[in-house]
Every structure is written in structure tokens, then in C-alpha cells.
Design a protein around this nucleic acid. Structure first.
Lengths: 94, 94
DNA sequence: TATTTTGGTTTATAACATAAACTAGTTTAC
DNA sequence: GTAAACTAGTTTATGTTATAAACCAAAATA
């Protein structure tokens, strides 16, 4: 009846990040921060978790002299997101 | 872009309970426990939270000599659930 | 009458989300 | 050129949450 919801995705901020990443090739930290209206600290922590789960890839580089953090969703992440959405439907489609 | 998700509903067990209650007139504690496969303790706590938020009504009575806890969703609960579902769609409909 | 079961509640703990504080360097204003 | 403010984050601390474990009272069962 109710499949478990991946706890890694069942978090407002991480879900918003995945939602953004699924429709773009990659996104910068500041872009994600703006779109999700999160604090940098919170975003940093949640990106790490998604990265450690293998759901996203994080590449650190420099743009000019400033640090640049770029994120992209992985195949595993896409699969996890799709599964999450499918499972969620059991809960919200009365 | 991303509306906040009601934290009271953004919980697997509470969401499952609301999902069940929205399509029935009322449901017993044991029914909810079975359907959600939760432990009694966890369910008890989460029902209290939904009740305190005014999302459900809890009526305690006896069936024969045994205690009976019956739950039903309130208008406020229906509204909250519908809002939650609508907001959630922003996250999952890329 | 001892044990198990029912129908829960209360309490303790571990995980989580978040904000606040901090770091390291860059740009701007004086 | 140096102080102040800004950028782009990370780390740490704290409060909240979810969950399991322990508990309770009564009833049913062996």
C-alpha cells in the first residue's frame, strides 16, 4: 500500500535541489541557493548528503579568482527521484 | 517557485494517515496501524500531532470492554492535505 | 492463576534540518 | 594601501523530529 519514501529525498530542500537538477545539465551553488531560497550553510550540508548518496556530482573549480561549485544529477539520482515520485503518488492520489 | 511544504504533513507516517483518512468517514487506531505498518507508539505520537494541529479528530471510547480510538479528518485537515499536494506538485512535476 | 494479547501511552535516543558562526579570499571605498 | 564589505562557501551548535523501546492496564486465553 504505502511504499517507503527514500528519506534522502523526503526533505524539502534536497527534493527542491533534485527537482532543479533533473531538468538541467548542471547548476551552480549560487543558482541553487537562489532558486531554493535556502541559506548557504543548509544548502552546503544537503548537497553533501546528496553527493555522498551518489545522487549528484559536485565539481569544485574557480571562475576567475572565486571558487565555483557546480552540481549535476547522476543516473542513480534520476532513478531515485523517479522512484520517489512514483512512491509518493500512493500517498497523494487518494 | 517552491512553496513551503507543511512540515506537519511532510512526514511519511502522518501523510499516510491523512491519505487514509481522506477517503473514509473514520478509521480505528488498529486499522491505521495495520495499513501504515507502523508501530503503535509511533502512530500514537503522530496522531496526537495531527490532532493538536486540528487536522484530525480523535474520539476515545470502548468497544465492549476494550479501549477504542477512532480518527477522522477535519475540514481543516482536508484543506491542509490539498494544499500540501498542490505545493508538492511544484517539486515533482519537473 | 499465570501468561499472553490487546490497545494503547510515555520516554529515550538517534537522526535531521536549520541557523549561526566561521573561513578564505576578493572587491570596493576611502 | 588598508579598512570595510562582499562572495562563496564550510563547520559547528542547537532545536526539532521520527522512531523504537519500555511501559501500563485491562482482557483473553491456556
Amino acid at each position: 500500500m504505502f511504499n517507503d519514501l527514500d528519506p534522502l529525498l523526503h526533505s524539502q530542500l534536497r527534493l527542491a535541489v533534485m527537482s532543479l537538477l533533473i531538468s538541467v545539465e548542471s547548476a551552480e551553488f549560487t543558482f541553487l541557493k537562489e532558486k531554493t531560497k535556502s541559506t548557504a550553510g543548509n544548502l552546503s550540508v544537503q548537497l553533501d548528503k546528496l553527493s555522498e548518496a551518489g545522487y549528484i556530482q559536485i565539481v569544485k573549480s574557480f571562475r576567475g579568482k572565486k571558487p565555483l561549485t557546480t552540481c549535476s544529477i547522476t543516473k542513480k539520482g534520476i532513478k531515485a527521484f523517479e522512484d520517489y515520485v512514483n512512491n509518493l503518488k500512493q500517498y497523494i492520489n487518494k
